[in-house]
Amino acid sequence: MTQTPQTVSVRPLVASDESDWRRLWTAYLAFYDSSVPEEVYQSTFARLLGDDPQDFTCLIAEVDGKPVGLTHYLFHRHAWKVENVCYLQDLYADPTVRGKGIGRALIEAVYAAADDAGSPTVYWLTQDFNATARQLYDRIAAKTPFIKYQRP
């Protein structure tokens, strides 16, 4: 468990978090004008509770015991490194607590997990319009020159 001075705690997802996790992930998806079917909610939650923490993991941020943020991350092989690298797939903080260190605490917890796993790299993507989050990212990570392409 990671603590920051503003009483933010970060901990692994547990089965009893399902309703809070759904609330947070739904809001995250909505921020990106996206949604997923019920089947994806069910399979994602089951994967996140899986036995292998290097497979697919979720951390929950709490303030005063209330879940207010989440991150999903996973480790994968990389052709340019011997070690696995860490992909931080989703990061979300409830709008009512933004600016209180939630995102930073979650990212730093993923950094710590990557260090524990011997992973030299943590990377993530964000959309260019996500200006508020990018202010944080610019302080705690290095922006790369890569542009993402995706099959239509």
Rank of each mutant, 00 (worst) to 15 (best):
L48G: 00
N84C: 00
F75C: 09
L74R: 10
W25I: 02
N84R: 00
I60Y: 09
H76N: 02
Q89K: 05
A61R: 02
V40L: 14
T44R: 10
L24H: 03
L24Y: 05
L74P: 06
H78F: 09
Q89A: 06
V63M: 15
L29I: 09
W25H: 01
Q42M: 06
T57M: 12
Y87A: 02
P37N: 10
Y73R: 10
H72F: 14
A30S: 14
D55R: 15
A27V: 11
F75V: 07
Y32R: 11
D52V: 03
Y41C: 13
H78E: 11
L49T: 09
D51M: 04
F75R: 06
A30Q: 14
R77P: 03
A30P: 10
T71D: 10
H76F: 03
C86Y: 07
Q54E: 08
V85G: 00
T26K: 13
R47L: 14
G69V: 09
E38G: 11
V36C: 12
V40C: 11
Q54V: 06
F45I: 00
D64I: 13
T44M: 08
Y32Q: 04
L59E: 09
H72D: 08
R23E: 06
H76I: 01
L88N: 03
E83D: 00
F31S: 05
W80C: 10
V82M: 03
L29H: 08
L74G: 06
D90P: 06
E83F: 00
